[in-house]
Structure formats: structure tokens, C-alpha cells
């Protein structure tokens, strides 16, 4: 599958610098840019398969053609899984009830609940249980559950992620689980580790796609040390949460 984003117009109504971007199955693309530069709007255009009918007037094509209108209007047929910026669930029900209900709405086996929980618990230090109430989960637990739900229940060929950093979850692992095999992944991020894990990144400015940068080999060499820093930070966070006192041995990355 190839998704094509045809450039539209920025906030001043000027044509976007990037006129067209193709993304094929198996690719992970980053979206970067300051707050308000249009990152979430670009994700939203992809989610809706915009046809010149959103503020940016972009077009999104599947394998070179506009998608069947039926696919646009029926989310159950949309090949898109989306992790939005929301850090919490609002539905007042148990994790069990909610995940089973979501599985049914996607025509999946409600028994996948145990798999969802198992995966969520690899991403967060605070375990999520089936009988927990959704609204009582912490930000980290909610994000971990959202990621696992997308990887197991939604399991769509196109995955759109609006920031997975800042939730205190293992983000590299989360991106790996969300990407699965051969999916098209677009991830909005300010996080150097995640940005360098992508093959290319779209730079947003004033509502428009300003340029596309290919991740260089030089940049990729940052990845290992960034990953070590990230793991170190998470482990310190965990020690502090458990009420322990950090010692000099922890100061080594």
C-alpha cells in the first residue's frame, strides 16, 4: 500500500513547499515542528483521507486514487489506527468491559483482553488490571493501555501517532509494538530518540509541510546513546516512585 499526501495550503493560504509525499508499507515517518505548526492537523487529514475539504485543502490518496467514500465515512472500514494526544480515558467503566466492547466493535475476539493487558504491562511500571476503572488509570497506564489496544485490537495497516513521549512509558518499545510488521506509520514527535528511529521526517511550519529530511547515518549513530539515556531516566523514575534514595551507582548511564 502507498499513501500519498498531496500538498495544499498553509495558514496564510500559500501553497505548501512540499507538494507531494509518498509513504509505503513498512515505513516509519516522523512529523516535527513547533506547537501550532499543524502537526495534529496533518495527522487529522490522513485520518479523514482529506479530499480538499479540510482547512489545509490537502488530498490523501491510497495507491494513487481517492479512497472509496464508504471507507471515509465508516470508521469500521477505515484502515487507520490512531493514537491521539489524549492522556486519559473518559469512559466510566472497567478496563475489561471497555476492551471487550472495543473488540466487539472491531469484530475481534473479546478474549484478546488478556493479550492487551500483558502488552500494556510491558510498557509501564504500574500494572494495569482488568477490573481497574478506566478513569482512575494514571497517564502512563492510560497511554500504555491505548498503545496495546491499538496494537492488538485495532491492528490496522496505517498507524497515526500524535506524541507518545512524556507519558513515562517505554517509548521505543511502544513505537515498535505500534509499527508491527509492514505498516505505514506516521509519528508526531519532539523526542530525539523517536525522531531518529524514523526513516524520514516531515518538518511543519505555519500549517504547511516545509521540507522532508532523510535521517542521516550520522544521526542514526545517536540512537544507541539516546536509548541508553532513556532507559536510565525511566529506571531512575521508577526508583523515585518506589520511595528509594538514589545512590552514586545509579549516576552511571
Amino acid at each position: 500500500m502507498i499513501i500519498t499526501i498531496k500538498g495544499g495550503f498553509d495558514k496564510d493560504g500559500l501553497p505548501e513547499c512540499v507538494r507531494s509525499v509518498d509513504v509505503s508499507s513498512g515505513e516509519v515517518i516522523g512529523i516535527v515542528g513547533p506547537t501550532g505548526s499543524g502537526k495534529s492537523s496533518l495527522i487529522s487529514d490522513l485520518e479523514q483521507f482529506a479530499q480538499g475539504d479540510t482547512p489545509s485543502r490537502r488530498y490523501v490518496l491510497i495507491d494513487g486514487f481517492p479512497p472509496d467514500p464508504e471507507i471515509r465515512h465508516d470508521p469500521r472500514r477505515k484502515p487507520v489506527a490512531q493514537l491521539s494526544q489524549n492522556m486519559h480515558f473518559l469512559a466510566d467503566m472497567s478496563v475489561r468491559e471497555f476492551i471487550s466492547m472495543h473488540a466487539r466493535s472491531r469484530g475481534r475476539d473479546p478474549g484478546l483482553l488478556s493479550k492487551v493487558l500483558e502488552m500494556a504491562n510491558t510498557l509501564t511500571g504500574e500494572p494495569v488490571h482488568a477490573d481497574d476503572n478506566l478513569t482512575e488509570l494514571s497517564g502512563g497506564q492510560s497511554r500504555a493501555l491505548m498503545v496495546a489496544d491499538i496494537a492488538v485490537i485495532s491492528d490496522s495497516p496505517i498507524v497515526l501517532i500524535d506524541e507518545i513521549e512524556n507519558a513515562g512509558i517505554r517509548k521505543k518499545e511502544a513505537l515498535r509494538l505500534l509499527s508491527g510488521e509492514g505498516k505505514i506509520v506516521l509519528v508526531v514527535t519532539h523526542d530525539p530518540l523517536l525522531a531518529l528511529m524514523t526513516e524520514r521526517r516531515i518538518v511543519m511550519r505555519n500549517g504547511g509541510m516545509a521540507k522532508v529530511i532523510n535521517t542521516t547515518d550520522e544521526e542514526r549513530r545517536f540512537c544507541d546513546s539516546l536509548f541508553r539515556v532513556d532507559t536510565w531516566l525511566l529506571s531512575l523514575r521508577e526508583l523515585i516512585r518506589r520511595g528509594e534514595v538514589l545512590s552514586a551507582t545509579e549516576a552511571v548511564i
Partner: peptide, 12 residues
């Protein structure tokens, strides 16, 4: 304001 899963359950 909600996750995609919540939108889908609501729709159902």
C-alpha cells in the same frame, strides 16, 4: 478529547 477506541465504542 477521547481515544479512537472510545469513539468506536461510542459509535457502536
Amino acid at each position: 478529547l477521547v481515544s479512537q477506541a472510545e469513539r468506536e465504542v461510542f459509535r457502536e
